[in-house]
Amino acid sequence: MKLQQLSLFLENRPGRLEAPLTAIANEDINILTLSLADTAQFGILRLIVKEWETAKRVLEQAGWVVNLTEVVAVDVLDRPGGLAAALKILEDAGLNVEYMYAFSLRRGDKAILIFRFEDPDRAIEVLLDKQLHVVSAEELMSFVP
């Protein structure tokens, strides 16, 4: 049920984002979604791609430090209040969210939330128990052209 997310260390300088993205584009790897967190000095690029093993290898060979993290995807209805309802459930269950990001799919009426939990296994149990739809890697990747 967990997804593999790649994280990359980047310096916060102009042009630093383009190089890793080009490196994986050259391998014909399509990015499902990404998020960028930054401070004044550095940034962390987080990527979800289908062929994460290839992407990780390519990036590491090109010299980037790549970290593999397990994240959890949940889909909610793409309408006002959809996210808030899901967050309420997590909060009630006392689940600690390290960070999250969201994106909506091109087809369908669903939005996907990506969560980085302290304890992803317990989080999945709670989410399933509360009837939320945890999106598996296979399901998610079926959306990638």
Binding site: Q5, S7, F9, A37, D38, T39, F42, I44, R46, V65, V66, N67, T69, E98, Y99, R116
Partner: peptide
């Protein structure tokens, strides 16, 4: 230089 040993996917971790 950031090494795999200290790199974290969390900003707080790196800070």
């Amino acid at each position: 230089e950031v090494t795999p040993e200290v790199f974290s996917d969390k900003i707080r971790g790196l800070e």
